[in-house]
Computed example of a mutant assay.
Amino acid sequence: MPTSMPCPSIRIPVEQLTPSSFAQFGTVIENPAHANRPPPNNDFVPKSVSANQGSALKYLDVTHIANLYNLAPSKKPAKAVMNMFVCAPRELRPHEPSNSMPSSWGDIDFDDDDESASVNAQRELFDVPILERHPFTTQTFIPMGLSPYEKHTQYLVIVAPTLPASASRRRTDRAPPYPTPHKPQRRSIKDVFARARPSPFTNESAPPPSQFSRLHPSQKPKGPGLPDLKNIRAFVADGSQAVTYGAGTWHAPMAVIGDRAIDFVVVQYANGVDMEDCQEILLKPDARAEEGVVVSVESDSSGKVLVKAGPGAAIKAKL
């Protein structure tokens, strides 16, 4: 049975999935030439070279893949695996007013009529009862057969930062479900001298850099903490985008919104040890909560999910 944590009532607005907005949690894979919005700066545009005798443009390092299973307690090696998830559309419930606490976007009024909103817009709610993470591996979801121009089916990417371990202990009656590796306190004489500057065993003037220094920020271990629900975020993606969750990133299981299922090819590492491959946390509304963690999903008359927060969003906030 997964560990559970109490949660307040909180409603999350939907943002557009972009490389810059998602950088804290992982990477977005998309063709920069066909992206429906200009990149904010060159940091998020992969380098490209000509390939296939000039008939193709090859973008380099479009996502970050990490295998951190050397940190797992079991030390069992992992292998690269590729699976397919056929994700059916999620059930949404009708919109109803709520006194939910503000999310990281502030006290956005989801219940007040917005002059810029379409009169035919449909407001619905998606409940988030569980989050999961893969502490020692990245996980890439690649949608198949979904047109970038299809308005009737999209998917939500719901992610949360990680709380410090000290804060996590105050929010649940059990220890955080992260199998942190054991760090031996005693070191051999060789280990002590190996850390000296200069090293007696090499010609280097300093020890080699940590393996983590070469990793993208989203790839680095997140620590043993529980999800930071006050800063949970929800992004909407279309068929032109794939997404990579950074190792240890708390996220909801893939949520398809629309008329039909989406086939995802999923690439990750796994070693077959349950608690090292995947960890889950149940979000249970506390005694004073009306509903728990909820994504507010607003769609236009064609069924396209509307962006309500972030760049380009038209929202009305309570002042």
Rank of each mutant, 00 (worst) to 15 (best):
M1R: 08
T3S: 10
C7L: 12
P8G: 03
P13D: 04
E15C: 14
L17G: 09
L17H: 03
T18E: 08
S20C: 04
S21D: 10
N31T: 12
A35W: 01
P38Q: 14
N42I: 15
S48L: 00
S48A: 14
S50K: 05
A51S: 09
G54E: 02
S55R: 09
K58R: 15
H64A: 14
A66L: 08
L71C: 05
K79R: 15
K79V: 10
M82T: 08
C87M: 07
P89W: 00
P89N: 02
P89K: 00
R90H: 12
R93Y: 11
H95E: 14
P97Q: 09
M101A: 13
S104H: 13
G106S: 05
I108S: 01
D112H: 15
D113M: 06
D114I: 14
A117W: 07
A121G: 01
V128C: 08
I130A: 01
T138D: 11
P143E: 06
P143N: 02
M144F: 14
M144Y: 12
M144T: 12
M144P: 00
M144R: 07
G145Q: 12
G145R: 10
S147Y: 01
K151W: 00
H152T: 14
T153A: 10
Q154T: 11
V159F: 07
P161C: 10
P164M: 10
R169L: 12
R169M: 09
R170W: 01
Y178G: 03
P179R: 13
H182E: 15
R187F: 11
I189Y: 12
K190A: 13
T202H: 06
A206Q: 11
L215A: 09
L215Q: 14
P217E: 00
P224I: 03
P224V: 05
N231Y: 10
N231W: 09
I232L: 13
D238M: 01
G239H: 10
G239F: 05
A242S: 15
G246F: 14
A247S: 13
W250N: 06
M254Q: 07
M254V: 06
A255S: 13
I257P: 00
R260L: 10
V266Q: 04
V266D: 10
Y269T: 03
A270S: 13
G272Y: 02
M275K: 09
L282C: 05
E290V: 04
E291K: 03
E298K: 02
L306T: 08
A309M: 09
A317C: 06
K318A: 04
